[in-house]
């Protein structure tokens, strides 16, 4: 495959606070993103997905957050760059779309100025050229009447249009890597589908790679080539999209899939939640963090931390993986 666009190696993020135990938010994760590829980072709240993306972008606060490991983009190390050097890359090579489109737009600046700002900054366009380009970008993300919208403020746009505008801003300089951090969480279901297909359309056919951060396996199913499932700051399973859905190996992935409501389930059947919550975790240094919530737990899981090993073409971190497909499991219950 040649050299990956983005190589994340042993990335760890530890939050230290005076008088408190340090919190390990991201624990030694490694993954690659090839040009044009869409990679999913999936997991529930607090598993370290967003912190991973902020660490890649260099947006974590310099005080309190300790980042170690290595993040190389096109062979160049990103960690340890100065803010000034990072500013040259962010927005131009690396773009990011945030979760809440309303709070991610500046409420007192018209949309057009916010798009033009990036173009003037990185592509050194004149104000006039930048405005024309901004209208073109709004048109490309499917906002009707773009010239009028340029003068409007974020509160005058609907949720879906705001997210489209954010995507337009993130893609303004044609970055080679786009990180989308839960881009559809704050939107209506109908709009979610539109935004996802827009993202898919914008990255397919270009060599822009996309890291999709989500807790929603539905999003993953529609968009990602490769999926990393995170739990407690570590990657617990990595698989190609189809393999993951057909044959989830880690009990956590299996639980996530089983907890999705199904239209074709018999009437009155109860949903299968994953027991407990993230607060039940034990430390990875002691054993498997998921063990307290795991239906497949063994004695070994509490004392012996599992390693991430190759498994059926993917990667897996589990002592006692699930052997049956989710549909079969549904039937057995």
């Amino acid at each position: 495959m040649g050299m990956a666009l983005l190589e994340v190696r042993d990335l760890s993020v530890v939050f230290r606070r005076r008088g408190e135990e340090p919190t390990i938010a991201v624990d030694n994760i490694s993954f690659d993103v090839e040009p044009g590829q869409t990679v999913g980072l999936v997991g529930e709240s607090g598993c370290g997905k967003s912190v991973t993306s902020l660490a890649i972008m260099g947006l974590l606060p310099s005080r309190g957050a300790e980042v170690s490991g290595s993040v190389t983009f096109e062979g160049k190390e990103l960690l340890g760059l100065s803010q000034r050097q990072l500013d040259e890359r962010r927005g131009r090579d690396l773009g990011m779309v945030f979760q809440d489109p309303l709070s991610s737009l500046n409420p007192v600046v018209p949309i057009g100025v916010q798009i033009a700002e990036v173009l003037e900054r990185h592509r050194k366009l004149s104000r006039k050229d930048a405005n024309a380009e901004a209208a073109e970008l709004l048109n490309r993300v499917g906002i009707p009447d773009p010239n009028r919208r340029l003068d409007e403020y974020p509160h005058q746009l609907s949720g879906g249009m705001r997210q489209r505008a954010l995507i337009a801003i993130a893609l303004a300089c044609r970055p080679r890597l786009l990180i989308a951090d839960e881009p559809t969480t704050a939107l209506d279901v109908t709009i979610q589908a539109q935004i996802l297909s827009l993202l898919a359309e914008l990255v397919s056919g270009t060599d822009t790679a996309l890291i999709m951060i989500t807790h929603d396996l539905g999003v993953v199913a529609g968009l990602c080539d490769e999926v990393n499932v995170m739990y407690g700051g570590r990657i617990v399973e990595r698989a190609q999209r189809h393999a993951l859905f057909a044959e989830p190996r880690h009990p956590y992935t299996h639980g996530l899939l089983a907890s999705i409501p199904r239209l074709d389930a018999p009437r009155g059947e109860k949903l299968v939640p994953i027991r407990g919550s993230v607060v039940d975790n034990i430390a990875w240094s002691r054993g498997c963090a998921f063990a307290p919530r795991c239906p497949n737990q063994l004695e070994q899981c509490w004392t012996d931390p599992p390693e991430l090993v190759e498994d059926r073409g993917g990667m897996l971190r589990c002592h006692n993986p699930v052997e049956v497909a989710p549909l079969a499991a549904e039937g057995a219950r």
Binding site: R90, G91, L94, F98, D100, S103, S104, E117, V118, R121
Partner: peptide, 15 residues
């Protein structure tokens, strides 16, 4: 959030 978003776009500190 919008300041974080602006930083993610590499907007200069003065701006």
């Amino acid at each position: 959030d919008h300041v974080l978003a602006a930083k993610a776009l590499g907007v200069k500190r003065r701006a």
